[in-house]
């Protein structure tokens, strides 16, 4: 079984390369479907493969940057990426993350950091999950009552309130189909940025639901636009982590080959999934993340890894199923001469 192992030139360890491809693949599927980087999902997997943890973050970020690139290209073709919105949001994200990092440094000085950050993370994730499921049940009720709009039944419509804020300059985002004050996306991304900087995460996990619930983006556009931001921050992150010597470049390439296939499947699957389906699966992923953090807080790292990896596998299989069933259906219809689009 010698050929199954690959020598990592920098750390000098031998790693089971199909494992790396598999991690890349599943994170590719999930990232392409939900529009997030997914760094939090990779670390436990790498840990199990015996990958040196000193290189985990850098390797992970570089692979995420490459993968987001693949997904962004694909989403862009679907018209899922609102570049204008993405660039406007970059402004808020940048300032926000800086503020968030400053808060963390302040907390570090007064010696409160570790568990505060972790518990804030748990609360934020719980709120997101609550929001997603509240939205889901409201939409189900609306549908039962026959209250269906142009794009199907809607759940939470907080963004309608948000859109009433009319501070100039007003901006129209064509792809997302919204017109609002320029300050809305900037303030929302600022808020997400602060939280992301504070928690030390990429922020896709926060930005995706924020785009949907606060800015009023259709779910698909939220996914695509968020990936665009993940790509830009990922490339820069990869550069700086490499400068610090924290990257195993060969592993990045191996993971990327898996991610390339996964990202296509995840992204194309969004075509066959309803917006609400994406949101609910996202909510489940968020809960899995939350549970794993709580377990880690109580020093049950093994159990946490099991929870994360289990959730990833299930969601990944579910997404693949959507993709293959949807694609098969489309091809059948095409053959029958009644193409759907």
């Amino acid at each position: 079984m010698e050929w199954m192992y690959m020598h990592m030139p920098i750390s000098g360890v031998n790693i089971l390369w199909p494992g790396l491809v598999l991690i890349g693949f599943s994170v590719g599927v999930i990232g392409g479907f939900f529009g997030m980087g997914g760094a939090w999902m990779v670390t436990p997997g790498l840990n199990i493969l015996g990958f040196p943890m000193a290189f985990a973050i850098g390797t992970d970020i570089a692979h995420i940057a490459g993968k987001s690139m693949i997904s962004t290209v694909r989403h862009s073709k679907f018209g899922n990426v609102d570049y204008k919105l993405g660039i406007v949001m970059l402004i808020g994200t940048m300032i926000g993350i800086e503020i968030g990092a400053q808060i963390v440094m302040h907390l570090e000085r007064i010696g409160l950091v570790g568990s505060v950050v972790r518990w804030v993370y748990v609360v934020v994730l719980a709120l997101i999950a609550f929001m997603v499921f509240a939205d889901y049940f409201k939409a189900v009720n609306n549908k039962k009552r026959g209250d269906v709009g142009a794009h199907g039944a809607e759940g939470l419509t907080w963004y309608k309130t948000m859109h009433r804020i009319k501070i100039p300059p007003m901006m129209t985002f064509k792809e997302a189909g919204i017109t609002c004050s320029m300050w809305l996306p900037i303030m929302v991304s600022l808020f997400c940025g602060i939280l992301a900087g504070f928690l030390g995460i990429g922020g896709g996990l926060l930005r995706m639901p924020a785009l949907v619930y606060l800015i009023g983006c259709p779910t698909h556009i939220a996914v695509g636009t968020d990936l665009f931001e993940v790509m830009i921050s990922g490339l820069y992150g990869a550069f700086t982590y490499t400068l610090k010597g924290r990257i195993e470049i060969v592993a990045v390439f191996v993971m990327l080959t898996g991610a390339a296939i996964g990202a296509q499947i995840g992204t194309v699957a969004t075509k066959y999934a309803k917006g609400m389906g994406i949101k609910v699966a996202f909510g489940i992923a968020v809960i899995a993340c939350m549970v794993s953090i709580i377990l880690k807080q109580y020093k049950m790292a093994d159990l946490a890894a099991v929870v994360i990896l289990g959730a990833i596998s299930l969601i990944c299989i579910w997404i693949c199923k959507i993709m293959f069933v949807g694609a098969a259906h489309e091809l059948r219809m095409k053959k029958a001469g009644t193409p759907i689009d």
Binding site: G12, G100, A101, G200, G202
Partner: peptide, 21 residues
């Protein structure tokens, strides 16, 4: 301008690692 601060978001701060391959 934007990206340097985004780096912080990319993960927890990491110290320089001196490794010789």
């Amino acid at each position: 301008v934007v990206v340097p601060s985004m780096l912080l978001a990319a993960g927890p701060k990491a110290a320089d690692l001196v490794v010789v391959a």
